[in-house]
């Protein structure tokens, strides 16, 4: 699903934290947003995922420029610190399907399939609270992907995880994207990770997108001086 953003502004307590004139996430690509802490990355995806309201501006979804309410069921967000429901892994992954009233057989099938993708088949009956951080995040990813979203948003979903989980999550996202043609927006702090999975890269700073382009261009030949400094790690944040 394509996402077109225009004139988006957001202030917290009078302090502007987001100010984006025009930004388009094309259908069927992996977009990676990088940028220092507090630059507004989470605020941006929270607005796109309908969790927060912008003060001004619009987000239009799909090629027919639909409103959020019309596409709500096709968007999911995976957060950095996911909240897992106090129940089994199975029920966590099944949550969204049950909300949609999917039938039992279908749900079971899809949940098992999703759990297998994230290497958690053996964990289905475990209580979510007993999992490690990496396993929890894989559950969060599985319960988002099982809904077959057309727009998948991930907010630092691999920050502070073990390398094995990071590897699994990156692979699953890539496979999911190729298989379904979904649009992916992936926020990360990690420039190496951005290089691994991005097709397009966006650098955010002070609530603005200050550089955007293909991975090759952004990493190979960035336009702005700030981007070069950021990529060389010279910007302290």
């Amino acid at each position: 699903m394509k996402v077109q953003i225009s004139g988006l502004c957001k202030k917290y307590d009078g302090k502007p934290v987001l100010n984006i004139d025009n930004l388009t996430f094309e259908q069927g690509r992996i977009h990676v947003i990088i940028g220092p802490n507090g630059s507004g990355k989470s605020t941006l995806v929270n607005i796109i995922s309908g969790l927060e309201k912008a003060d001004h501006g619009t987000v239009a979804y799909g090629s027919n420029q639909k409103r959020f309410e019309e596409v709500r069921g096709s968007i999911t967000l995976v957060m950095q610190h996911p909240y897992l429901f106090n129940t089994t892994v199975f029920s966590n992954i099944a949550y969204g399907l049950r909300c949609r009233g999917a039938d039992k057989k279908q749900t079971e099938l899809l949940v098992k399939e999703a759990a297998e993708k994230v290497n958690l088949s053996a964990f289905l009956t475990r209580k979510a609270a007993t999992l490690s951080g990496g396993e929890m995040q894989r559950v969060a990813l599985a319960r988002a992907l099982v809904l077959k979203p057309e727009l998948l948003l991930l907010d630092e979903a691999t920050a502070n995880l073990d390398p094995e989980s990071i590897g699994i999550i990156e692979r699953v996202i890539r496979d999911f994207q190729t298989a379904t043609g979904a649009t992916v927006v992936f926020i990360t702090h990690n420039i190496f990770q951005a290089r691994r999975i991005a097709e397009r890269v966006y650098l955010m700073m002070g609530g603005r997108i200050i550089e955007e382009g293909s991975k090759e261009k952004t990493f190979g030949n960035p336009e702005s001086r700030i981007t070069r400094e950021f990529l060389r790690g010279e910007l302290i944040f």
Partner: peptide, 11 residues
Amino acid sequence: LIQKTAFTLGA
């Protein structure tokens, strides 16, 4: 947080 999580999963 629970509410947000539920919303992002289509509740």
